Simulated assay, not measured.
Amino acid sequence: MSQCLNPDCLQLNSKTTIFCQKCGSKLLLTDRYRALKILGQGGFGRTFLAVDEHKPSQPYCVIKQFLPQAQGTNNQQKAEELFQQEAIQLEQLGKHQQIPELFAYFIQDHRQYLVQEYIEGENLAQELAQSGAFSETKIINLLGDLLPVLAFIHQKPLIHRDIKPENIIRRKSDNKFVLVDFGAAKAATRTALAVTGTVIGSAGYVAPEQALGKPTFASDLYSLGVTCIHLLTNKEPFDLFDVSEGDWVWRDYLTVKINNTLGQVLDKLLQQGTKKRFQTAQEVLEALQLTVKPISSPTPQPNIELKSAKGVNYHQLEQLL
């Protein structure tokens, strides 16, 4: 089927149709990308599964359509900037096997669109809902696989600002974790970091300094820590934080066993004070005694300047902890 992209129509048409049979809107974006169905909808717009009809195999891709729910001129303008910013950030990141590649960004019918690589798989929120609380091994695998991706992003330098289970997809083809949704990403220049900015992020996962509009690289690590304890406990972040004590009480909700080293790493990721927290992804990897390049990785990791932590093999981690 071919999905109409007109927000007021959304009629399903036959796959060979050029114009929507209900509203007459053109179904192909730039005479190339055809939407098949709606994948999801958020505050900035809709996401569609699509095909690229310019390629012989007609591979799947993802269309993001800017369709803000924000009210007011200022909010609308900010939403437009963030949507365009996502395209810019993806372009600047270039090709990375665990970040969706940007294929196109354009305006059609007075609406903004970006087209990016389709990642087949479930996000971690979906996996949690289906399989229940993550085991220690699954959390170790998550950290070992995703921390080098964060290091790559931070070296650009960018801060993702929205690390959470919904934005991490376990790719079906190789079980690798892919980080998505760079709409909130911010360039981490010295000037930008010195200026208080708009508060962006998902409630419960946002680091204290980010909530004040001053995110740092350590803010992403904090959000990753919150993601881990949410996955370990299957409890919402707000339930894992004791407001009266100003501290995380995630261990009270554990139903799985974890070792002391992993627990200490998670505690440090969750420190309220930025300076008490891990500052870089490399520090976390070293604390976990993970190597940057797991033996099981089918393709070489990007050339990022991280040092192997004491030469420890990835697969030996559970025996070492």
Rank of each mutant, 00 (worst) to 15 (best):
L5A: 05
N6W: 07
L10M: 14
L12I: 12
S14I: 09
T17S: 14
T17A: 15
K22G: 05
D31K: 15
Y33K: 00
A35L: 04
I38A: 07
L39V: 08
G45N: 00
T47F: 02
A50S: 12
K55S: 04
P56T: 10
V62N: 02
I63K: 01
K64Q: 02
Q65D: 05
Q71F: 08
N74H: 12
Q76W: 12
E80T: 11
F83I: 04
L93T: 02
Q97S: 03
E101A: 11
L102F: 01
F103H: 13
A104S: 13
A104E: 11
I107Q: 10
I107L: 08
D109H: 14
H110M: 12
V115W: 01
E120A: 11
G121Q: 07
G121C: 04
E122H: 07
L124G: 02
A125W: 03
E127M: 06
A133P: 04
S135P: 00
E136W: 00
K138T: 03
I139L: 02
D145M: 05
V149S: 07
A151R: 07
F152V: 01
H154V: 11
Q155R: 13
K156M: 10
P157W: 07
L158G: 04
H160G: 06
R161L: 06
I163W: 03
I163L: 05
K164T: 05
I168L: 15
R171K: 15
R171H: 11
K172Y: 11
D174L: 06
F177R: 07
V180N: 02
V180P: 00
V180Q: 01
G183R: 03
V195L: 15
G197D: 13
V199D: 09
G201N: 14
Y205P: 05
V206N: 04
V206C: 14
A211W: 06
G213A: 10
K214I: 11
P215E: 09
L221T: 01
Y222I: 04
Y222W: 10
V226R: 02
V226T: 02
T227V: 07
I229Q: 00
K235H: 12
L240P: 02
D242P: 01
E245F: 03
G246P: 02
D247K: 15
R251W: 04
Y253Q: 06
K257T: 10
N259R: 13
K268E: 06
T280H: 09
E283N: 06
E283G: 05
Q289I: 07
L290G: 02
L290S: 04
T291A: 06
S296D: 11
P300F: 03
P302C: 02
S308K: 08
G311W: 08
V312C: 10
V312A: 14
V312P: 01
N313M: 11
H315R: 10
Q316W: 12
Q316D: 14
